[in-house]
């Protein structure tokens, strides 16, 4: 009895609830996901490599990962400005702004997609002012990036807000009373303590962006080699009944987003360890 799978409890229903949980989880999530990996495993290596490295596919990776990276960086910057403003300042309309930050979560992606396209196309409210400047916002990588900023912004704001609220100001006061300027205090005191949250928000926005579909397909224009994201290419392969290629691409994308999420977990674990070391 040195090692127990379950510790004793007086509450009933452990076997029933855990059994149901595992059954439902397996049926809905685990078995279908396993089917994807099994399907891909049946493809011979040389064919698999050709599928995931043909030029049109590589162009879609570059676009998807490039636009997602830029969008996550922009989300991080904008998200910082918004989170700082919401936590530190009091101004009329603050609570409304705070509530609508989650708009991109609440709006269905297809709805956001057509709305952003209507705004940014050359007759749109914003697009018509960009057109004379020679900026093509819709049906271009820029449009894709804007849609991904829209989707990624709430992730950054919502991970930064609690971190900023936790800063109690004492360290800032100490730095200021030791003669540090506001700028130095920010760079040396504030920024390092919110950096983990900022990186987590960035990574969450990035992970969401690489798999995003609905808000991007309308604004992308979907030209092969130019504005075709990998998610769309998976759909295209499926429509051509090339299920093997669709699965292969899906596995590449899935492994990429798992890697990003694993990186977040490792980061958080290391930070937690560092704090424990201090205490």
């Amino acid at each position: 009895m040195a090692f127990k799978l379950k510790s004793r409890s007086v509450l009933p229903g452990f076997g029933l609830t855990l059994g149901l949980t595992l059954t439902y989880l397996s049926l809905v999530v685990l078995i279908p996901l396993a089917a994807l990996f099994l399907k891909t495993a049946t493809i011979p290596w040389d064919r698999l490599w050709l599928m995931i490295s043909e030029p049109r596919v590589v162009a879609s990776y570059k676009l998807t990962f490039g636009a997602s990276l830029v969008a996550a960086a922009v989300s991080a910057l904008l998200g910082f400005i918004i989170a700082w403003t919401l936590v530190r300042y009091r101004f009329p309309g603050r609570r409304i702004i705070d509530a609508i930050i989650d708009m991109p979560f609440a709006l269905p992606t297809a709805v956001s997609g057509i709305a952003l396209t209507a705004l940014l196309s050359k007759n749109g409210w914003i697009g018509r002012y960009l057109e004379p400047l020679g900026i093509k916002a819709a049906f271009s990588p820029l449009g894709i990036t804007i849609a991904l900023v829209f989707i990624g912004l709430p992730f950054v704001v919502r991970t930064l807000q609690p971190a900023l609220e936790e800063l109690d100001g004492e360290a800032e006061e100490a730095a200021a009373s030791l003669g540090a300027s506001r700028f130095t205090t920010f760079v040396r005191v504030i920024f390092p303590s919110i950096l983990p949250a900022l990186l987590t928000g960035f990574a969450l926005a990035f992970a969401r962006a690489i798999g995003e579909y609905g808000s991007v397909v309308f604004i992308a224009g979907n030209m092969p080699m130019k504005t075709e994201i990998t998610s769309l290419l998976i759909v295209t392969k499926l429509e051509q009944f090339d299920i093997a290629a669709a699965s292969a691409l899906a596995v590449v994308m899935l492994l990429a987003s798992f890697a990003v999420l694993l990186a977040i977990n490792v980061l958080q674990w290391r930070i937690a360890k560092r704090y424990r070391g201090v205490m």
Binding site: G211, E212, S231, I234, V235, A246, A250, M253, S257
Partner: peptide, 8 residues
């Protein structure tokens, strides 16, 4: 898991 893959 991205939406397209969830359907796939």
């Amino acid at each position: 898991v991205s939406p397209v893959i969830s359907g796939l």
